[in-house]
């Protein structure tokens, strides 16, 4: 869900249901690393309901697009983490079996 002003799409608050610090903090990180973002922060209004509000203010680009790019970036990073990790585990396995064979 998005709460933004109609006149100025460069600032908006997004409300994610069923999410917590796990996603919000990671997205805040990627957004703050984006040069188009002038402010980004998140809050959990009440600990009993599973909801986070993410505030995005940009230097001009639509906040919605910037948030989308932030998520896209995070996804690509995860993808890279996964492939690197799988490779590292594979390397470790081949090394240890070689050592056992020696």
């Amino acid at each position: 869900m998005e709460h933004g002003s109609l006149q100025d799409p460069s600032r908006a608050t997004f409300s994610f249901v069923d999410e917590d610090h796990t996603l919000a903090n990671a997205v805040r990180f990627t957004l703050n690393q984006d040069p188009r973002v002038s402010f980004c922060g998140y809050s959990i209004p009440h600990p009993s309901d599973a909801r986070v509000n993410i505030r995005v203010q940009t230097t001009g680009d639509p906040a919605r697009e910037v948030l989308k790019d932030g998520c896209q970036n995070l996804m690509l990073m995860c993808h890279h983490v996964r492939s690197t990790f799988d490779k590292a585990v594979g390397d470790y396995r081949t090394n240890t079996t070689e050592m056992e064979n020696d």
């Binding site: 796990t22 997205v27 998520c71 995860c78 996964r82």
Partner: peptide, 20 residues
């Protein structure tokens, strides 16, 4: 660990599809 990374990817994807 790989499953955990996949879950974070899924979360991002869900947000992206919801926004577009």
């Amino acid at each position: 660990f790989t499953e955990a990374v996949k879950i974070l990817e899924d979360k991002c994807e869900r947000v992206i599809t919801e926004l577009s």
